[in-house]
């Protein structure tokens, strides 16, 4: 029997890892660093995929469970595990939420075959009538990206035109939709709780479809709802389409992503009519136009030399 105290401690430990980072790559890096930090080169490679799947489980609210000691395992304990066995099984238990006291265990089986690794997942209840889910991962394809995300090392030449963040997010969504979310839903059923169709339980691509229908402002506000939504609502593709929708197809190269381009452009557009009328005269009333903030990157955006009084506009009052 698992004591509640252990659960609480572990779930807050898991939360700590999850909570501190907002994006998938960051979260992965933290898990990798914690677990693989001192391992030597050859052994790391094989564990990377296992650990990456492990990270998705943690992110979805599962914790590893040791069947012998009937305890939640703190940390992945990579060092004590040696080389990757040909059939690895890991057990997990969902972090209890509310009435989730029933002891539900799920099992993941990792089967490497050449460059492929198939991960099977099912409820560990011994009955033959249980659903098994699986996802197949291509080690050759994924490991370079995982390594990159983990250690920020150089990508091989052939991969340089792809974005590791994008590849890793694709992996993340794939594992979550095909393996982890169905397991979570089954765990709910097993413990007698109804898993209502809620926004969280929709597959990620359907969530993205919905978010795409939002306006830029609504999309940005949705980031505040939860860390999962923040991660989804930060998708660069999404913001590119929001940007084009709002401001037309402009080449904006000086921003790190389309979201910040959108935010700055939005500030600029709301400011534009005023600049045009003020260009020839000192800006006596700028205090009211700006919400008392400095102008948002206008010179950088259009690469124009502003008149000196505009550069030093802070000196003009009244600023409240």
């Amino acid at each position: 029997k698992i004591r509640d105290g252990d659960y609480a401690a572990e779930s807050s430990a898991a939360k700590k890892v999850v909570g501190n980072s907002f994006s998938v790559p960051k979260f992965l890096r933290e898990v990798f660093t914690e677990e693989l930090g001192q391992a030597s080169g050859g052994r790391r490679r094989h564990w990377l995929l296992v650990l990456a799947v492990h990270a998705v489980m943690l992110d979805s609210g599962f914790l590893e469970f040791d069947k012998k000691s009937k305890k939640v395992v703190r940390g992945f304990g990579f060092h004590s595990r040696g080389d990757l066995p040909s059939d690895l099984s890991l057990f997990y238990t969902p972090v209890p939420r509310g009435a989730f006291a029933e002891n539900v265990i799920v099992v993941l089986k990792f089967q490497p075959l050449g460059k492929f690794m198939t991960v099977y997942g099912a409820l560990d209840n011994g009955s033959s009538k249980r659903s098994t889910y699986s996802v197949q991962l291509n080690e050759d394809r994924l490991v370079p990206f995982l390594k990159f995300v983990w250690a920020d090392c150089e990508l091989d030449g052939g991969l340089s035109n792809t974005s590791p963040e994008k590849e890793v997010s694709k992996f993340w969504i794939d594992v979550k939709d095909k393996l982890v979310s169905p397991l979570l839903i089954d765990s709910y059923k097993k413990s007698g709780l109804e898993y209502l169709p809620c926004f969280t339980s929709l597959p990620a691509d359907l969530k993205l479809n919905i978010l795409e229908c939002l306006s830029g402002v609504d999309l940005a506000r949705v980031s505040c709802v939860s860390s999962e939504l923040r991660s989804l609502a930060s998708t660069d593709e999404l913001w590119k389409s929001k940007y084009v929708e709002a401001f037309g197809d402009l080449d904006v190269l000086m921003f790190e992503n389309w979201k910040s381009a959108f935010v700055h452009m939005r500030d600029f557009v709301s400011f534009k009519p005023i600049t045009q009328s003020c260009l020839l005269q000192p800006p006596f009333e700028w205090g009211y136009c700006y919400n008392h903030q400095p102008p948002p990157l206008m010179p950088q955006l259009f690469n124009v030399q502003l008149p000196l009084w505009m550069q030093n506009f802070h000196n003009y009052g009244p600023w409240i």
Binding site: K15, F199, S227, E228
Partner: peptide, 11 residues
């Protein structure tokens, strides 16, 4: 949005 969609605030 959290209440309507049953989304847990994990921040």
């Amino acid at each position: 949005v959290r209440r309507k969609f049953g989304i847990e605030n994990d921040y």
